[in-house]
């Protein structure tokens, strides 16, 4: 069966799927992003049932099936729950980022769930589970998750 293709290049149709798409961020994310952009404050919704505080913010408590209606301030400092360091420039990594790129799963003080973000201003070999980090805000903020530039190690206070 494969003989009929002997010496013939199979035909391949090359294409690229590129559909412009605008996601409505929703009122919950909008409130969170406005606070980041205008006040450099990290706020999060709290479930009125189990009192859990959720980052990233979302409208519904996954445990209680309640609408989260209260908002609270959470700290810009937290603890690294886990991390990884990309050594290869995977296609998903933004073009302007240079490897190694480090991501952390960060539980901010006051929140009950952890947020994914970049870890930076740290040597890859110094990143550890349990390390304390602090948010660094972007100078120019546009109301996106990148209004936090990255998290960096908390400088030890003497």
């Amino acid at each position: 069966m494969s003989d009929k293709f002997k010496g013939i290049e199979p035909m391949v149709y090359n294409s690229k799927i590129n559909v412009p798409y605008s996601w409505w961020a929703g009122d919950t994310a909008t409130k969170f992003f406005i606070s980041l952009r205008d006040e450099k404050k990290i706020i999060a919704p709290r479930c009125t049932g189990c009192k859990k505080i959720f980052l990233p913010p979302r409208k519904v408590c996954p445990e209680c099936f309640n609408e989260n209606t209260e908002w609270v301030n959470v700290s810009d400092e937290g603890t690294v729950q886990s991390y990884t360091i990309a050594r290869r420039h995977l296609e998903s990594i933004p073009k302007n980022k240079k490897v190694p790129v480090i991501w952390g799963l960060i539980k901010l003080d006051g929140a009950d769930t952890a947020l994914l973000h970049y870890l930076d201003d740290v040597r890859p070999e110094d990143v550890k589970i349990g390390m304390r980090v602090k948010a660094v805000f972007a100078d120019s903020r546009k109301g996106t998750i990148r209004d936090i530039s990255h998290f960096q190690p908390v400088k030890s206070r003497v």
């Binding site: 990884t84 998903s92 991501w103 799963l105 998750i145």
Partner: peptide, 30 residues
């Protein structure tokens, strides 16, 4: 890498550029 990046939430996570390998690497460390 681009296909699995699309599994991340577009509002909060996707532009950070993680994919299935990096997500699972984080899980492996944990």
């Amino acid at each position: 890498s681009l296909i699995t990046n699309s599994a991340f939430d577009p509002i909060y996570e996707r532009e950070l550029g993680m994919d299935m390998i990096t997500a699972c690497a984080m899980q492996a460390n944990s």
